[in-house]
Structure formats: structure tokens, C-alpha cells
Nucleic acid binder design. Structure first.
Length: 479
RNA sequence: CGGGGUGUAGCGCAGUUGGUAGCGCGCAUGGUUUGGGACCAUGAUGCCGCAGGUUCAAGUCCUGUCACUCCGACCA
């Protein structure tokens, strides 16, 4: 099949040009279509199904931890946005404004939400009077708009889908606990559902969210060894509450400002899935979120009994709760093999005349391309086992990439060399001064990704200035 | 917002010194095929990104503009 490669070869090799490979996969796997507006894309059924799976799992996790969904308006009056100083300054450069209603000039500009802190605050101010009204643990699924200058599918859109949790609590401890609980949920989700190992930690002052007291993050390593911030969780203290004048009467009959958190994960994570697991054949989706977990391919489907056997197999899989599909189009089997590999379907089952005779089918793993003959008896059970293996293997592979490409540096030069020759995450000690963070950005071309919760004392001195170090920080080139 | 690249059929591209648009894939119809991107026949599809200009004549030359894309700066 040498001449049969034409379409496959339209994907740029992953290690030849990673950026090109990425955009090839994103379009060829039918995830998105570009739209007329820069940075706004059409999420096609396959991408949206993936997002829905992500949504279902996360939403369930949120509900189990006592959160309720709400929906806030997509418009924010300028005066409301401006109430918290750091917050506006952080977002102002990328806010999209509405200035006209029909042909009438508006008396006040209206901002299209880049995030909804201000809306939640304004609402909380109205509904919270007493300690009995607390906590409120709200979440919303919505889209937000940030007028980015450069955009890339999933990684940086001008409009993107996400969820933003916003909670408000009577005490510091409770709010802090919430902040960490949600980070743990994201980490659990990434590792156990998306097969993406994470580094958990705190953002530096420079990298934290505009208006937050503390920002926590999970950082993932992509196949090209760059970092992707996959979700964040923020502790706001009472800063927003004070700016928005949210007060409640506590048990001791005094007026107090409550404490808030927010946390979010976006469709950006889909970019993360692609860049963590994909290979030269295209996408590779983790079984737990793959829109189609098993693709049944009939071989010589016009022959006696083949399509019936394929249908029966499909039904059996569906009945056992698997997301399975079959492709009965008149494309050649080889075309179908390549097509569903491109789309990252975790497992393919081939069933043809020979298999039917032997009461079996041929399973082909997307992760290893390994072919295994499976008995049709108990096929649902063996498929589930295989999917579990694939899920685990994908995590292990990603973990190996993370571990094998995490390095230690004791000087700026060493860090720069590692970044330039190998890429990856570099652990190094830091004195906590912004000037050193900026210098590392300038000289080693990295940004601080996080101060990991799991600290190691690599040395006593800051990698940059040599003064006493306060933390070990993970540095990397980031998306 | 700075630097590079690209805009011609759905996609990928060709189009010479300016002369009125082509190839491959895909698509449609019919037939033969089917265990790694099958084949034959027939057919449809274009405001050459957009706006000006030069010219008897512009896909081609000039000016402007817009979009996409990559690399930086900024951000999820």
C-alpha cells in the first residue's frame, strides 16, 4: 500500500513541525472549522462531543462536592467591571466592547464578559445578608470573550467555552479549603480521565490571576515539551467582597466581608489532549472521554452475513454501555482504518468472513497499533479490559514524557541550555524576587509555571541572583 | 502589536515575456471491488481574498486593504 498514503501524508510529521502537525490534526480530524472572525471557530460534532464528555464528568464532580449551576449575563456594564482595580487592569487590554444598541449610541459602554467575577460579586451582594446565606457554591458553563491578538485552535480563542466556579464563604479556612479541593478535582480529572499527568502548585505573584490573592494551577507537559496551564483555582480573600461591598452579619452579630474563590477549565484542555497524546497518525483520545470508544469496521461487508455480524457486535457493545459506532460506507477498509486512527478512536474492531467463521474479531489498539484476536463471546468484557489498558498506557506514556523531560538547573546559563537543547520543565530554586523571574524570562526564555506543592531543596541559593532561595519553582516555555 | 509566509474549484496546488483558467484529491452517477487510505467510465463545481490603478487586454504589473498562518511580546 505505498500509493495509499496520500491523505495520511497530508499530516505534517509531529516531530518535523509540531505547530503545523497540530493545526493539521485539528482540521483533518474534523474537530473544528475556521470561521470568518479570527479566533472564533466552529466546534464540529466530534469536538463538541468530546467537550460534552468532559462537561459531564466535571459537572458531576462539581455536583458531588455541593456546587450548583447558574447562568450569568454575557454583558457587563463598564462601571461594574471597574470596581476591582487589579482585575480591570488585568483584563482591560483584551475586552470586547459593545457601544451601540441598534443604531443608538449607548450611554455606558458594555463589556462582553472576559470572565464573570464582577457579575457574581454583584449578585452575591444582593443575596447575601447573613451567615445563614453562606456558603454559595456556584458554577456556570458558558463562553467568554477575550480579544486576543494571536489565536490558535483550542489553545487561544477569542471566544471559548469553559466553566467558571465562583464560591463565597464565611471564613478564610473554608474558602482556602475550597480553592484546594477544586484544584484536586481538576488534577484528578486530568490524570484519571484525560490521562494527562499534572504538576500541582501555586502561581507566582507575577503569574497569578488579576485580582486574586493566590492562584493555584495544574501544569501539563505537551509532547513538544512545552507547558500547558490546564486549569486554575484562585483564592480571592475578601478583596472582591470589599470592592463590591459584599457583607454579611455573622453569628456574633457583626458585619463582615466574606471570602471568595473561583476556578476554571476551558476548551483549551482539548488542545492539551491533542498535544499530549497525538502522534503521526493523528489524534489519540483517552477512552474515558473519546466520543467513539470502539469503531467496528466490517470487512467485505457485501458478503453473506458480514454486515449482520457487524451490527450484532455493535449492538452488544452499545448494550454494555460502550460508545461504539460502525462505518458501513463503501470506502475501502484501509481508508477506514486510517480515518479512525486519524480521529483517535481508541479501539478498532475488524470483522470479516474469516472472523465470523472463527467466532472472533480483530481488535486494533490505537495507542500501540497492536492487533489482537478477540472471541465474540464476552467481547464486551474483553473490550472494556482493553480500553482500561489503553487508558493506563496513555497515562504512562505521558508520565514518562514528563519525567524524562524534567530537569534541574543551578544557573541561568544551565537553564537556558536545557531549554534550548532539550526543552521541558526545569526545576530551580528561586528567591521570590520579581526581578529574577523577569531575568529568567529574558535570558533563559522561560516563565515560572508554578511553585510545586511537592518541594525539593535543590540548593540554598536562587538560580538567578544567588541570594537565599525561598522555593523550588518549575520553569518552562509555555503555551 | 512587531517580523516572516500564504490567499486561484470543497481541500492541496500549477499557471512562462500580461492574451480571458488548469492538475491531483474530494464530490455526483453507474459498475467492478473490499483483512492497511481500491479501480473504470461519465459528470458538476471558479467575481483568481477585496478595492483602486496601469493597459487594447490583469490570476499575472503597481498601490492600498483584509483574512489566515508561523515566530516573538501579552494572555487561559
Amino acid at each position: 500500500m505505498t500509493q495509499g498514503k496520500k491523505d495520511v501524508e497530508q499530516i505534517t510529521g509531529r516531530d518535523i513541525d509540531f505547530a503545523k502537525w497540530y493545526t493539521d490534526v485539528v482540521t483533518k480530524a474534523e474537530l473544528i472549522d475556521y470561521s470568518q472572525i479570527k479566533g472564533c471557530v466552529v466546534l464540529r460534532p466530534y469536538a463538541y462531543a468530546l467537550w460534552e464528555n468532559i462537561q459531564k464528568i466535571l459537572d458531576d464532580m462539581f455536583k458531588k462536592t455541593g456546587h450548583e449551576n447558574v447562568y450569568m449575563p454575557m454583558f457587563i456594564p463598564e462601571s461594574l467591571l471597574q470596581k476591582e482595580k487589579d482585575h480591570v487592569e488585568g483584563f482591560a487590554p483584551e475586552v470586547a466592547w459593545v457601544t451601540l444598541g441598534g443604531s443608538e449610541e449607548l450611554t455606558e459602554r458594555i463589556c462582553v464578559r472576559p470572565t464573570s467575577e464582577t457579575l457574581f460579586c454583584d449578585h452575591y451582594k444582593n443575596i447575601i445578608k447573613s451567615w445563614r446565606d453562606l456558603p454559595k457554591k456556584y458554577n456556570q458553563w458558558c463562553s467568554v470573550v477575550r480579544w486576543e491578538k494571536t489565536t490558535r485552535p483550542f489553545l487561544r480563542h477569542r471566544e471559548f467555552l469553559w466553566q467558571e466556579g465562583h464560591t463565597i464563604h464565611a471564613t478564610v479556612d473554608e474558602a482556602r479549603e475550597e480553592t484546594h479541593r477544586m484544584l484536586d478535582i481538576y488534577a484528578d480529572f486530568c490524570e484519571n480521565y484525560l490521562a494527562m499527568p499534572v504538576v500541582k502548585g501555586q502561581k507566582t505573584e507575577k503569574e497569578k490571576f488579576a485580582g486574586a490573592e493566590e492562584t493555584y494551577t495544574i501544569e501539563c507537559m505537551m509532547h513538544d515539551r512545552k507547558a500547558l496551564q490546564s486549569a486554575t483555582s484562585h483564592y480571592f480573600g475578601d478583596g472582591f467582597a470589599k470592592a463590591f461591598d459584599i457583607r454579611f452579619t455573622d453569628k456574633d452579630n457583626t458585619l463582615k466581608n466574606p471570602f471568595q474563590t473561583s476556578w476554571g477549565m476551558s476548551t483549551r484542555i482539548i488542545g492539551g489532549i491533542i498535544m499530549t497524546h497525538g502522534d503521526d497518525s493523528g489524534l489519540k483520545l483517552p477512552p474515558k472521554v473519546a466520543p467513539v470508544q470502539v469503531m467496528v469496521i466490517p470487512i467485505a461487508q457485501h458478503k453473506e452475513g458480514v454486515s449482520e455480524a457487524a451490527d450484532a457486535l455493535l449492538e452488544k457493545l452499545k448494550l454494555s454501555g460502550l460508545r461504539a459506532k460502525t462505518d458501513v460506507s463503501d470506502q475501502s477498509p484501509g481508508w477506514k482504518f486510517a480515518e479512525y486512527e486519524m480521529k483517535g478512536v481508541p479501539l478498532r474492531l475488524e470483522i470479516g468472513p474469516k472472523d465470523i467463521q472463527n467466532n472472533q474479531c480483530i481488535a486494533v489498539r490505537r495507542d500501540t497499533k497492536e492487533k489482537i484476536a478477540l472471541s465474540l463471546t464476552d467481547i464486551d468484557k474483553s473490550v472494556k479490559e482493553l480500553l482500561d489498558k489503553i487508558q493506563k498506557n496513555m497515562f504512562e506514556e505521558a508520565k514518562a514524557n514528563l519525567d524524562n523531560n524534567t530537569f534541574v538547573a543551578y544557573s541561568v546559563e544551565e537553564m537556558r541550555d536545557i531549554i534550548q537543547t532539550k526543552g521541558g520543565f526545569v526545576k530551580a530554586m528561586w528567591c521570590k524576587d520579581l526581578s529574577c523571574e523577569l531575568e529568567l524570562k529574558e535570558k533563559a526564555l522561560v516563565s515560572s509555571r508554578c511553585i510545586p506543592f511537592v518541594q525539593e531543596k535543590l540548593s540554598d541559593c536562587c538560580v538567578c541572583c544567588g541570594k537565599p532561595a525561598k522555593h523550588m519553582v518549575v520553569w518552562a516555555v509555555a503555551y
